[in-house]
Nucleic acid binder design. Structure first.
Lengths: 203, 203
DNA sequence: TCTACTTTGTTGTCAATGGCTACATTGGCC
DNA sequence: GGCCAATGTAGCCATTGACAACAAAGTAGA
């Protein structure tokens, strides 16, 4: 084997990439800084130069996760013909992402991020809800949905689909396919918004 | 201090009780078998006689959590005058429990339980959804809700409220109180079920 | 009561981990 | 060429979970 140069060059990227693989294979608890260092052929102290903490590395993973998820959501929001189809598509994209990357999802919505990372994570994580809100507003203007505060409605949609995402990712939905759950949930949400949601009228 | 007898007598209960306190104060990661043993004045090897694993202890915590939660849900399901009020009460009980015991909730819905514990946990955890299903059936018969497969509808209700519970427990709902989120979500669900949910008609 | 036997708790040990510090190497900048 | 910050190395330490050997105490049968 070729001997390694003293400076890795792209250690940070390499660590993140390998860490992402590891948590998807073994979960967050299966992630060890020392093993990670071994995996990328570097001494056990090297990661500390790029992430002051194990948590700092995890925060970086979470941020990358949100960005990846947002890309998919935005993609789903733009492709499709009618409003309702796009709405379901966004929901499906969210839940599919969760099922594809369950450990990453749990990291993204973990509560123990460093305070400095939290702000960035929060704002990045809220993009999904904004997409939903825009779609709801559009559907209201088109007359497909009843009037009601789009912010409240979008929050409820996000909350509900987050539940589906979390449960699907955790394999807590037995006897039902992920698609069916998303279909049933989006049907419920759309029916509620079409009929009018009392709590959203007050705001 | 009185010297301890060689046999503790109620070590298992003492460990569970103290462990419950610990995870609520410091999260699951803050739970250490050795520290736990110190807390109850016992040697570091003693817990192994009652829980073969750290995970086995956590599984026991999760089971206790489900049982505690089920008691609250059943209580809420029985108190109240009209159907819709009871429905909201159950939802509120669920989310309140999650907010009061966030670490416990994450343990309850963790994916890494031991295979033998999983079955018991799963069946215990499904009681909540059964309560919801019974209420929905009752409301349909009373004419308050449109027809539709109660199992599907109950699942969607559970999924949605689980989302609210998880997000509320993780403090991911800013700018809104827990009560408002529960109100908005239950309003949405009830409105949807009253209007009729397409996916629930097919079944 | 004496005696096996099981349960429960103790003590010592082991490998692994995260974090820290002192040190080495490298590359950039003046 | 020489200084200096950035990057990587090596060693150390306390803590942890798991395991094994041993001790103490309760139990059940002759």
């Amino acid at each position: 084997m070729t001997d390694q140069p003293y400076h890795h060059g792209k250690l940070r990227e390499a660590l993140l990439e390998r860490a992402m693989e590891t948590i998807e294979e073994a979960g967050v608890d299966g992630l060890s800084l020392r093993q990670l260092a071994r995996d990328v052929n570097v001494s056990h102290g090297a990661p500390a130069k790029h992430f002051r903490d194990k948590q700092a590395l995890i925060d970086a993973l979470a941020l990358a996760g949100f960005e990846s998820m947002n890309r998919r959501i935005h993609g789903a929001a733009q492709s499709g013909d009618h409003l309702r189809g796009r709405f379901v598509g966004v929901a499906q994209a969210y839940v599919d992402f969760a099922v594809a990357h369950p450990a990453l999802l749990s990291v993204m919505y973990s509560t123990k991020h460093h305070p400095d990372s939290s702000a960035e994570l929060r704002s990045t994580g809220e993009q999904g809800i904004q997409v939903a809100q825009a779609m709801i507003t559009e559907a209201q203007e088109a007359g497909d949905l009843a009037a009601g505060d789009p912010e409240t409605l979008a929050m409820v949609c996000f909350v509900s689909l987050h539940g589906a995402a979390v449960l699907a990712a955790g394999k807590h939905l037995d006897g039902t396919t992920v698609e069916d759950v998303v279909a049933a949930t989006t049907d419920m949400l759309w029916a509620g918004m079409a009929a009018g949601v009392p709590a959203a009228q007050l705001s």
